[in-house]
Design a protein around this nucleic acid. Structure first.
Length: 723
DNA sequence: ATCGGAAAGA
DNA sequence: TCTTTCCGAT
């Protein structure tokens, strides 16, 4: 009952604003897209495809039509719709997958952040010392959920599908809200929702008929095929180990039957948390974003209930969240995304999967996503390999040595021992991280420029940053929480310091970086995004020095999962949010770098090249301020992608310049240049991953977390009721 | 096909 | 604030 709002909602306005307010809420395009994506009926029109969060609009006109119907804009067409979609680039909700027509990719991280309630806000502080505390304890209180509750929010559709029903009640509520129809008569909602029934038919033909694309349009088929190339769901499962059980159940699912059963979607039978149950289970369901996506395992994708249509925001209940995180993490590993990609949430411990080797290849390996594509195109060769790669977690155990190539074993263990992982992670899980300066967006540039330096400090305090207390806090909480384990929010700083700050390497642009870039690229969009975010925050807000052209490389430690969290996160998250939110935040003066690296020392993984950098900036700031980094740019993603597609090289040239500039600015001062060497080129360097991170979460913490989760869930329920 | 500015509507 | 509309540039 409490109003969720009372404390403050952390979400960005844009995220829920419309929706959240019952009356006014208008559905947002991304919600709508998500809604379509989750429905099988529309698979012919739009479907998940490819990488994590990537979807393709198979029938632009139809999608536009649907959207137009939903918004009562008969004039709607793809051109317009796509413009709207493009506005999401800056928000980082979405970005374009270059080289693929009508293909976009969601930045689920963002979405999650937006929606995800924080699980333990309150509790976190006290309970979970390690894992989550970070959040400023106080903070915990703030966050509450958005008005609507998370889990409940499922869309009606899901209800249908998912037997679970758990959500149904809620969903219904939501549903009604969603309905705003156009007088026209055709309300999209109706179409969609009813899709099962009525509307579905229309589309149904496509799917069933296969009319659509010759090949395959049969709805399901297409997906499947797609899937294989990349990660097979199976793969994930394997990694996690869990699947089996899961899968087992579903008899339906077999390979063929993926879509069929609703299974897991919604309800989460198992609770991931602690031990026994195993995270393993989780994995599958989540992945909406994951390439796995819907078809394969789940009919709909994202477990988190997203129901654009209905409710407003999507929310995730803790379990979902956890799953999501796991999946996400897995994907990160699989794809070799940057560590930053890992989502961190307080209290949630995610088992870490092993990281695929892909990276190794630097070039060859390419960055995960890209690689994927290639794989897709080329064949699945890589897919198999990836699976095998040792995960971070693994590495953690072992240490970082990451990259190497190959460890082809699949490690399921992570799943099994989530906790375990967590702990280990704490010990270390190094990642290397390189930052690339993103190209600046105009706006952003502007924004950034103004700012001076300030690093956010860490944690909680930071939250203050933006005006958005809520939002910030939000971010911070999450991040911090996650991080906290390792580093408490505030502590994060320390950690950094103690550890050694995150290091950033800056390299001169001119140099060839094919490798570097590659790596960067690796990071993948998401990563990028995240990075950006972080950077953004920092950079913009925090100072940056202009002028150098260098690439920065950061070393962080991240936890793979939320479990431990990397210190930096808070910032990052916040940043992200902010970006999204656009809240400017004033950075506190001394800040810590957001990254917290534990020790870079551990990881000396990389060799690097750093020289150039130093020259200029070289300031090794002692603690520094921050590191700056980059701003976020919309372009970055795209560019990266682009690069991939085309080849980095050519693109690089273009891109870099900008990036460098930015970098320079930011980097100026504070970055330490380090060695990272990600090897850029040479090869020794580790894999694509640029960054290292480590985390650890103690078991105890885990338990706590779980408890908290439950608690949170309960609360949510209550809250929902109110609604 | 995609991008993004600009203006206007809600 | 988000979207719609228009449109020139890539």
């Amino acid at each position: 009952m409490k109003t969720p709002g009372d404390n403050g909602i952390a979400f960005p306005e844009w995220a829920y604003k419309p929706e959240s307010s019952p009356g006014s809420r208008q559905i947002q395009l991304w919600h709508f897209i998500l809604e379509l994506l989750r429905k099988e009926e529309y698979h012919d029109v739009i479907a998940w495809q490819g990488d994590y969060g990537e979807f393709v609009i198979k029938d632009p006109d139809e999608v536009a039509r649907l959207w137009g119907a939903r918004k009562c804009k008969p004039q709607m067409n793809y051109d317009k719709l796509s413009r709207a979609l493009r506005y999401y680039y800056n928000k980082r909700i979405l970005h374009k997958t270059k080289g693929k027509r009508f293909t976009y990719k969601f930045n689920f991280n963002k979405l999650v952040l937006v929606n995800y309630p924080f699980i333990d806000m309150g509790s976190s502080g006290s309970n979970v010392p390690q894992s989550a505390p970070p959040v400023p304890t106080g903070a915990g209180t703030h966050f509450r959920f958005p008005p609507s509750t998370p889990s409940e929010v499922l869309s009606p559709n899901e209800d249908l599908r998912s037997p679970g029903g758990m959500f149904s009640s809620v969903a219904r509520r939501m549903a009604r809200g969603s309905v705003s129809d156009c007088s026209d008569g055709t309300s999209v909602n109706s179409e969609i929702e009813e899709g099962n029934t009525g509307a579905a038919e229309e589309r149904g033909e496509r799917g069933g008929g296969g009319g659509g694309g010759g090949g395959g349009p049969g709805g399901g088929v297409g997906y499947r095929s797609l899937i294989h190339p990349r990660l097979s769901h199976e793969t994930l499962f394997r990694l996690y180990g869990g699947p089996g059980s899961h899968a087992g159940h579903h008899g339906s699912r077999g390979h063929t039957g993926h879509r069929i059963h609703p299974d897991s979607l919604s309800p989460f039978p198992v609770s991931p948390l602690p031990g026994p149950v195993g995270a393993g289970l989780l994995a599958p369901p989540l992945s909406p974003a994951l390439s796995m996506t819907p078809t394969s395992h789940l009919p709909y994708t994202p477990s988190p209930s997203l129901s654009p249509m209905l409710g407003s925001h999507f929310s995730f209940n803790p379990e979902d969240m956890k799953r999501y995180l796991q999946a996400h993490t897995q994907s990160v590993y699989n794809y070799g995304l940057s560590p930053r990609a890992f989502l961190h949430y307080p209290n949630i411990v995610i088992p870490q999967p092993h990281r695929p080797a892909a990276e190794k290849a630097g070039l060859s390996g390419e960055r995960g996503e890209r690689a994927e594509r290639a794989a897709t195109a080329g064949g699945g060769e890589r897919g198999g390999e990836r699976h095998h790669h040792p995960s971070l977690a693994h590495s953690a155990h072992h240490h970082p040595h990451p990259p190497h190539s190959a460890h082809p074993h699949i490690h399921s263990h992570p799943m099994h021992h989530p906790l375990h992982l967590g702990e280990e992670s704490q010990h270390m899980s190094p990642f290397k991280f390189k930052l690339q300066p993103p190209p600046l967006g105009k706006k952003q540039r502007d924004c950034q420029k103004p700012r001076q330096s300030s690093l956010s400090s860490g944690s909680g305090s930071m939250t203050s940053t933006s005006g958005l207390g809520s939002s910030l806090s939000f971010g911070s909480d999450l991040s911090s929480a996650g991080c906290s384990g390792l580093i408490s929010a505030s502590s994060s700083t320390q950690s950094l310091n103690s550890a050694g700050l995150p290091k950033i390497k800056v390299e001169p642009i001119s140099d060839i970086e094919s490798e570097e870039e590659v790596e960067v690229t690796d990071i993948s969009d998401e990563d990028l995004d995240e990075r950006d975010e972080e950077f953004k925050l920092f950079s913009p807000r925090y100072s940056r020095a202009p002028d150098h052209h260098h690439h920065l490389h950061l070393h962080h430690h991240h936890l793979a999962n939320g479990s431990a969290a990397p210190s930096h996160h808070p910032h990052a998250d916040e940043d992200l949010d902010e970006d999204v939110f656009k809240a400017p935040a004033p950075p506190p003066p001394g800040l810590t770098p957001f990254f917290t690296s534990q020790h870079t020392a551990h990881r000396t993984l990389l060799p690097l090249k750093s020289e150039p950098l130093e020259s200029e900036s070289s300031t090794p700031p002692p603690q520094t301020k921050c590191i700056p980094l980059k701003l976020r740019f919309k372009r970055r993603w795209s560019e990266d992608q682009r690069m991939e597609a085309s080849q980095e090289e050519s693109d690089d040239k273009k891109v870099r310049p900008e990036a460098e500039r930015e970098r320079e600015r930011q980097s100026n001062g504070r970055m330490e240049t380090e060695e990272d060497g990600t090897g850029s080129g040479e090869g020794d360097s580790p894999p694509p991953l640029a960054y290292e991170g480590s985390l650890a979460t103690p078991l105890s913490s885990v338990r706590r977390v779980s408890a908290e989760l439950h608690r949170a869930t309960a609360q949510l329920s209550l809250e929902n009721k109110d609604c």
